[in-house]
């Protein structure tokens, strides 16, 4: 049996918001360590890897591994019904047909209970070994979201170029070009505002802007985002959770 209670429903709301536009159906795999999701978008360009660690929950128990096949659009309709500050509890039996979603306000004078039908979903699990990256950038997630939205208005591709001194986000479209250059700096008072650039080798990669626009829907999960890049390889975009992470692996574009 699974019983997971969040101190606030806001974490789950943000997680669903962050992934529902990339994938529609996915398995939530529940183990004693927490909840994981691995899913690939329909165009098979973006891979999502989510870990909601046991410590993200106020109370958590999962005696046996349980898979919840969830339609995120339906789940989102239910999850939006809770107030962000409500307790959120997910309950499922072993081999469940549905999952119970319970919201309680903190005064306990209102309890809302929903049941979501589960689906039997096929899913290929991809083995993601520890990848070697040539460059790692950590920056404020909101700044990365703005850069993405701004440059996406010019082109459907977004280029990321990392040199020793800086990182350049660049787009080249029909009516013009644009780029944003960031240098590394340390903000002692607000560490989350810092920009950290670690580069072993220079990087020049191009990605589909629409996929990065989907990735930045994770912005509300974390003050900062870490971007890891390697030549001719998928990029990793990571938003840290209180215990766990939301990672997006994005396949690059190549010269034909």
């Amino acid at each position: 049996m699974l019983e997971g209670k969040f101190e606030e429903s806001s974490l789950m709301k943000k997680v669903v918001d962050a992934i529902k536009d990339s994938v529609k159906l996915c398995n939530f795999n529940c183990t004693e360590h927490g909840v994981t999701v691995q899913a690939v978008d329909d165009s098979r360009v973006l891979l999502i890897s989510l870990l909601i660690g046991e410590a993200s929950f106020e109370e958590y128990r999962c005696d046996r591994n349980i898979t919840l096949g969830i339609d995120l659009e339906s789940f989102n309709k239910i999850i939006k019904n809770g107030n962000s500050s409500d307790f959120l509890t997910l309950i499922a039996e072993d081999s469940p047909d549905n999952v119970l979603i319970i919201f309680e306000d903190k005064k306990k004078d209102r309890v809302s209970e929903y049941s979501l039908k589960l689906m039997d979903l096929d899913s290929d699990f991809l083995q993601i070994d520890d990848m070697e990256f040539d460059a790692t950038i950590t920056m404020p997630s909101s700044e990365f979201a703005k850069i993405t939205r701004d440059l996406k208005t010019l082109s459907e591709s977004l280029q990321i170029i990392v040199t020793k001194e800086n990182v350049k986000f660049s787009s080249d479209g029909d009516f013009g070009t644009g780029n944003v250059v960031l240098k590394g700096f340390v903000d002692m008072d607000k560490p989350d505002e810092s920009i950290k650039i670690d580069m072993a080798r220079p990087i020049n990669l191009t990605f589909g802007a629409k996929y990065i626009a989907d990735i930045v829907k994770g912005t509300s999960l974390s003050e900062s985002v870490t971007i890891k890049l390697a030549d001719k390889s998928p990029a990793l975009f990571e938003y840290k959770l209180p215990s766990g992470f939301l990672r997006f692996y994005l396949a690059p574009k190549f010269d034909e």
């Binding site: 690939v40 165009s43 098979r44 360009v45 973006l46 891979l47 290929d124 699990f125 991809l126 083995q127 993601i128 591709s157 191009t206 589909g208 390889s233 998928p234 692996y249 994005l250 396949a251 690059p252 574009k253 190549f254 010269d255 034909e256």
Partner: peptide, 14 residues
Amino acid sequence: NLKQSNITNFFAKS
């Protein structure tokens, strides 16, 4: 012209 690669080509099925 740039071609979009496929994420599943980079990771092995397990």
